[in-house]
Simulated scan of single mutants.
Amino acid sequence: MENQLWQRITLDPNICHGKSCIRGLRYPVELILELLSLGMNAKEIIDDYDDLEHENILAALLFVVRMTQVKSIY
């Protein structure tokens, strides 16, 4: 399941200025996180962005979890 979620995230310098985003949709991961931090739940986000799927939100969360597990960033 984790590998399938990873496939939903794109890191490409030519897409969204190199920001991590949902593959094929160009929604930055940071947008998903911001909406969640503002109190929206997954259903509300999907209702507002009907081309998103629940797995896209899980992929964004997994991406950030893995990024915070990095021991140091240079």
Rank of each mutant, 00 (worst) to 15 (best):
I32S: 01
Y74Q: 11
L35Q: 08
S72V: 09
R26L: 08
M1K: 09
L61C: 07
L58P: 00
L36M: 09
S37V: 05
L33R: 02
N56M: 05
R8D: 03
T68D: 06
R23L: 07
T68C: 11
N56G: 10
H54Y: 14
K71F: 06
E30M: 11
C16R: 06
Y49I: 13
Y27D: 01
N41P: 01
C21F: 02
I45E: 01
E2H: 06
Y27A: 01
R8N: 08
I9W: 03
C16M: 08
Q7Y: 06
H54C: 09
D12F: 09
R26W: 04
L61M: 08
E44P: 03
D50G: 06
A60E: 00
Q7M: 12
L36C: 05
E30C: 12
G39C: 12
K71C: 05
L33Y: 00
E55F: 04
K71D: 05
I57H: 00
D12N: 15
E2L: 11
M67I: 07
R26T: 11
W6K: 15
I57M: 02
I22T: 02
G24M: 05
N14Q: 14
P28G: 05
E55S: 14
W6M: 10
Q7P: 06
D47P: 02
Y27H: 03
A42V: 10
D12I: 11
L38A: 09
T10E: 12
I32R: 00
R23V: 03
I15V: 15
L36N: 03
S72L: 10
R26V: 06
Y49D: 01
S20Q: 05
S37I: 07
V65L: 08
L38Y: 07
L52Y: 04
K43R: 12
H17R: 15
G39R: 12
R26G: 02
I73Y: 11
L52M: 06
L35V: 08
L36E: 02
L25T: 08
S72T: 10
M1T: 05
I45R: 03
S72I: 09
L35G: 02
D47G: 08
L38P: 00
R23W: 07
Q4P: 01
V29A: 02
D47A: 15
W6G: 02
A60I: 02
Y74C: 11
M40T: 04
Q4E: 15
D48Q: 15
L52D: 02
P28T: 05
G18R: 11
R66S: 10
L61V: 13
E34I: 11
M40Y: 13
I32T: 01
R8M: 08
S37R: 13
H54G: 06
D48G: 11
V29T: 03
C16V: 09
V29D: 00
R26Y: 04
L25G: 04
R23K: 13
Q4R: 11
E2I: 10
L38V: 03
A42K: 07
L58Y: 07
M67E: 14
V29I: 14
L33F: 03
M67D: 08
V65I: 13
C21S: 09
I57V: 07
